[in-house]
Amino acid sequence: MNGLECYISCLIESSLLLPIIIMIGFISIFLFRFIKKRNFESLLLSQTLITGVITISLIAMSCTMFNWLWIYLGIILIGSLMIFIIKNLLDNEIDENIINSISFVYEFEKEFNVPIQIIDSQRIKAFHYRKRIYLSIGLLERLEKEEIRAVIAHEIYHLKYSPNKIVSSLLAISSLTFRRYNDEKSADKYAVKITGVNNLINALKKLHIKNYEKRISRLSS
């Protein structure tokens, strides 16, 4: 009996395992493919369910001949451990020169109640890291105040609501869906809600952000 035959016979001979797997599988596929308003929660739920189904079936069958499934479990385990270590033990600072005092951003810090750090660079940079928002002088130089507000609001969304990229990647691999949630659209919507559509469109145009034409047409429609 080869690995696949062993796997199939284990599934057929168990009374409850097969129906449970089929049911959870259908729910997962439905959540992943057919929900109209596909958001991070639905993707996360379906990926967790798919991961769970694979893991439960593996443990329930104890099929030693199907070794690659154990490798799969190992990836999940090592990946989870790595996320835990990265998040809790390492405290890497970003590799950028920071300008310590700049009065220009105080009012934004007050308004959004989040620390904003200024990067000493002419390049256009805006990102969040460890509960802080980072903006470069190059970006501040190019934009009007309201446009800077739109960029900050976009980053605030990522800071507050976006999933951890490592967790998303791990789930995408472990569930075999290979799909990571991209929430730029939601962050844009959030920024528009706070600062108005024109400010974000102007900022995207001025900064020539990657895919900016696509994003602008989405915001304009």
Partner: peptide
């Protein structure tokens, strides 16, 4: 000179190129 001044003269270069 400021960066927009430089960009204005070197208008065949992209913003990212001048900044970098």
């Amino acid at each position: 000179m400021t960066s927009p001044d430089i960009q204005f003269v070197c208008n065949d270069l992209s913003l990212a190129c001048v900044s970098g």
